[in-house]
Computed example of a mutant assay.
Amino acid sequence: MTLEEISPDSTFNWLKKNMQDLLGVPPEKLSPASTLADLGIDSLAQLQLIVMAENELGASIPDSALTQINLHSLETLSATIDTYRNQCP
């Protein structure tokens, strides 16, 4: 999937695919309200997802955006990625 093919609406789908590939979490277990903690996603896995988003989606997510609020659920993580997707230096 290229950057041009990924719309903000599909960031959640990108997360679902990568969470399945990276962590083995089945897509049917994932909803926007799913919290990262409930899914067993630790800080290392969160960092891996952020780095993947930066590399694959062209996001430039500052450390200051990696807060508990922004990393609470798939919905907030998706919104955070979308916020910083078009801000690469």
Rank of each mutant, 00 (worst) to 15 (best):
T2H: 13
T2W: 13
T2P: 08
L3M: 09
E4D: 15
E4L: 11
E5Q: 14
I6F: 04
I6K: 08
S7G: 14
P8A: 10
P8E: 11
D9W: 01
S10R: 06
T11Q: 02
N13F: 08
N13G: 09
W14N: 05
L15P: 08
L15D: 03
D21E: 15
D21A: 15
L22Q: 13
L22V: 07
L23C: 15
L23Y: 14
G24M: 03
V25P: 04
V25L: 13
P26T: 14
P27M: 11
P27W: 08
K29V: 15
K29R: 09
L30W: 05
L30C: 08
S31H: 09
P32R: 00
A33G: 05
A33P: 00
S34A: 10
S34Q: 04
S34C: 06
T35D: 04
L36S: 04
A37S: 09
A37E: 11
D38A: 11
L39D: 04
G40H: 13
G40E: 13
I41G: 06
D42N: 13
S43T: 12
S43Q: 06
A45I: 06
A45V: 06
Q46D: 07
Q46M: 12
L47S: 12
Q48N: 14
Q48R: 14
L49K: 05
I50H: 02
V51G: 09
V51Y: 10
M52L: 15
A53V: 14
E54D: 11
E54V: 01
N55F: 04
N55R: 13
N55M: 07
N55H: 10
E56P: 12
L57W: 08
G58V: 13
G58W: 14
A59W: 01
A59N: 05
P62C: 01
S64C: 00
A65Q: 06
L66E: 03
L66V: 05
Q68H: 06
Q68D: 13
I69P: 02
N70L: 06
N70Y: 05
L71V: 02
L71P: 03
H72Y: 03
S73F: 02
L74R: 00
L74F: 03
E75I: 00
T76K: 08
L77H: 11
S78V: 11
T80C: 15
T80G: 05
I81W: 06
I81T: 14
D82S: 06
T83Q: 13
T83W: 08
T83L: 12
R85Y: 05
R85M: 10
R85C: 10
N86R: 08
Q87M: 10
P89K: 00
P89A: 07
